[in-house]
C-alpha cells in the first residue's frame, strides 16, 4: 500500500506516467491512489521527485 505524505505533493504527474494499472488520479491540487487497483509495484515511489510517496517495503538504497 502506498502512503501519500501530507502537504508535499506538487501534483506533477510523474507517478501517473509510470503507473501500470493507471490507478493514480491527479487533479489541480489533489492526488488519490485507488487501493483496489494498485498492484504495489512501487514504480511511483521510485520516480517521485519529492519523495511524497512511500510504501511499507520502500527501497532505501
Amino acid at each position: 500500500m502506498i502512503t501519500i505524505a501530507d502537504n508535499t505533493c506538487d501534483f506533477c504527474g510523474a507517478c501517473v506516467s509510470v503507473c501500470p494499472p493507471d490507478c493514480i488520479e491527479i487533479r489541480e491540487a489533489d492526488i488519490e491512489i485507488d487501493e483496489e487497483t494498485c498492484i504495489d509495484c512501487n514504480l511511483c515511489v521510485y520516480v517521485c521527485p519529492l519523495e511524497v510517496l512511500s510504501s511499507d517495503d520502500s527501497p532505501t538504497d
Partner: peptide, 13 residues
C-alpha cells in the same frame, strides 16, 4: 533517470 531514483536519492535530495 527513473532507474537511479531511490528513497534518499531522489531528485529533491
Amino acid at each position: 533517470n527513473g532507474t537511479e531514483a531511490k528513497k534518499g536519492r531522489s531528485a529533491r535530495s
